[in-house]
Amino acid sequence: DAPDEFRDPLMDTLMTDPVRLPSGTIMDRSIILRHLLNSPTDPFNRQTLTESMLEPVPELKEQIQAWMR
């Protein structure tokens, strides 16, 4: 099983494109984008959230890719 820090906190699946929300939570980009289609909010604190506020986490993405090899 993947380490917890590699798993999306909402869907508990392996992240492939991790992004940091303004709240500091790291999620998979595809999952948070799907959530934003229904509700333009951070799913953990209900603060306003837009796609432009998502910050890529390239170092975590590299760690996940290395773990998958």
Rank of each mutant, 00 (worst) to 15 (best):
F44D: 02
I64A: 00
N45S: 14
S30E: 14
P43K: 01
Q63K: 15
W67Y: 10
I31E: 06
D1I: 15
R69G: 11
P43E: 02
R7H: 07
E51I: 13
T25D: 05
E62G: 09
M11L: 09
N38C: 13
R29P: 03
E55V: 15
D17T: 03
P3A: 04
N38S: 14
R69C: 12
D1N: 14
R69L: 14
P9A: 12
L37E: 13
R7M: 11
L36S: 00
L33G: 04
Q65N: 12
E59I: 10
L10D: 02
V57E: 08
T25L: 13
R29N: 05
I26C: 08
P18Q: 04
R20T: 03
M27R: 01
E55S: 10
T48P: 15
M15F: 02
L37M: 14
L36R: 00
P3K: 06
D1P: 12
I32T: 00
A2R: 05
E59K: 11
T50Y: 13
M27V: 08
D1M: 14
S23Y: 04
P22T: 02
P3I: 05
I31R: 00
E51N: 07
R29W: 08
R20N: 01
M68R: 08
V19T: 04
I32M: 01
E62K: 13
M53I: 04
V57Y: 08
E51M: 11
P22E: 01
I64L: 06
N38M: 13
L49S: 02
T50K: 08
A66S: 11
M15T: 00
N45R: 05
R20Q: 06
M11H: 10
S39R: 06
D17I: 05
S39F: 10
V19M: 10
A2S: 09
G24F: 04
T25K: 14
T48F: 15
R69N: 14
L10P: 04
T41H: 09
M68Q: 10
R46Q: 15
L37H: 11
E55M: 13
T50A: 09
P40G: 11
R46Y: 14
A2N: 06
A66H: 10
S52W: 12
P56L: 08
R46W: 12
L60C: 06
F6D: 03
G24Y: 02
S23F: 04
T41C: 11
F6Q: 01
T50V: 10
R29I: 07
R34M: 14
L37D: 10
P18E: 00
D17G: 02
P3D: 02
V57P: 01
D42P: 02
P56W: 07
T48C: 14
S52P: 08
I64W: 01
R20K: 10
P18V: 04
M11N: 11
N45M: 06
S23L: 01
L14S: 05
E5K: 13
I26P: 00
S52I: 10
L36K: 00
D1H: 14
